[in-house]
Design a protein around this nucleic acid. Structure first.
Lengths: 202, 202
DNA sequence: GTCTATACCCAGATAGAC
DNA sequence: GTCTATCTGGGTATAGAC
């Protein structure tokens, strides 16, 4: 988990021990351990030796807190798709990049899978559908057949799934096989954009 | 849990228009329209001209109410998988059956996707993972390679996704293409169980 | 057997003192 | 920046009217 953000923290000088930041750390940990809905603000406050009210000074609401944890992943993916669109990535680059994205943020995604309640705090519905549409257009073009749509959907969906679930598989192996499988699925799209001329249908 | 679907309803003769049943109807409608979390017991009671407490007479809690709506789908799927295991269904039968199941209950699944809050009411976590494991074993056998696991995961996951999302595609077309794609994915499993000897890899 | 009235408690959220 | 106090919404629970 990375650089992570910095929600509404006041000071931007080298200082690090922002309470806001510590709150996010503890919150993420608890959310992953026991899910969003079963983690109360009281739990978080207790863990930090604070009161609920103190949390509100740093984060306007529980929803916002959750959103601020998901936001980096969201931005990352959105940015990648935009970049993919403008820079005409090859299919392989697209799928690899998408896997890496999902893998990088797998902890949050895992938390969201285990307790999807958290999706309610972020836009989710709009986001996921729009994301799916965008990925579909990249993979299947502007006038996809039903089969094309299905392939794009299943490939993207599967890729995301493979990257988050399956913690016991080592990264390199997981990545290689996941992308290969996605490539195979997408290969069935008629004259799929970014196709590598020499590919074998199977 | 078990028989039910008929919360605490008193009469068990042929009668149908039990209050308990009307509650479920109204509840499902509201849940689909505005999500689980944003639908309060008050909303449901108001719609029926009752009080919250009256609901309590028929259903022990909101969680139970939600669970009773999801239960049929759950039982249906569990039953199918058990049946598939004991009766050694072919891969095609398995995938077709799984699609049909997901399609039949797509309204509830859609509601659960749109507001995953409801998943908290049912076991969800345990259920889904166990279900995935079971499906994987059916498709990939007892000692799957990583690639096998991925294929089973992506196929099942994709099938479920295709059946619920994509309301604009007519049923027959959707079913045909979804199953075909799943078959294609699963075909890559080495000597996959239930393989039809004469199949073409693509 | 079916429902109302009412109280209860928890967790999210706000106001204002320090 | 953190506290105490308080409000609110809503799920839970019981007693009792009919």
């Amino acid at each position: 988990m990375g650089e992570d953000t910095d929600g509404g923290a006041p000071r931007r000088d080298g200082r690090s021990t922002d309470t806001a930041h510590r709150i996010r750390e503890v919150a993420l940990e608890l959310f992953i351990r026991q899910g969003f809905s079963r983690t109360t603000l009281q739990d978080i406050a207790d863990e930090l030796g604070l009161t609920r009210a103190a949390l509100y000074y740093h984060h306007p609401s529980k929803d916002h807190l959750i959103a601020s944890l998901v936001q980096p992943a969201k931005d990352d993916i959105d940015g990648f798709l935009t970049h993919a669109e403008t820079d005409h990535l090859s299919t392989r680059e697209l799928l690899e990049g998408f896997f890496d994205l999902n893998y990088r943020h797998r902890m949050i995604f895992l938390a969201l899978v285990r307790d999807p309640t958290g999706l309610g705090s972020v836009d989710a519905e709009g986001w996921v559908t729009q994301l799916a549409a965008q990925a579909q257009r990249l993979l299947a073009g502007d006038e996809p057949t039903t089969d094309d749509r299905l392939r794009a959907l299943v490939a993207i969906n599967g890729l995301s799934r493979c990257a988050t679930v399956l913690p016991d598989v080592p990264h390199d192996e997981l990545r290689e096989h996941s992308v290969a499988l996605a490539m195979e699925i997408v290969a069935g799209i008629r004259g799929h954009p970014g196709a590598e001329p020499g590919r074998q249908p199977r």
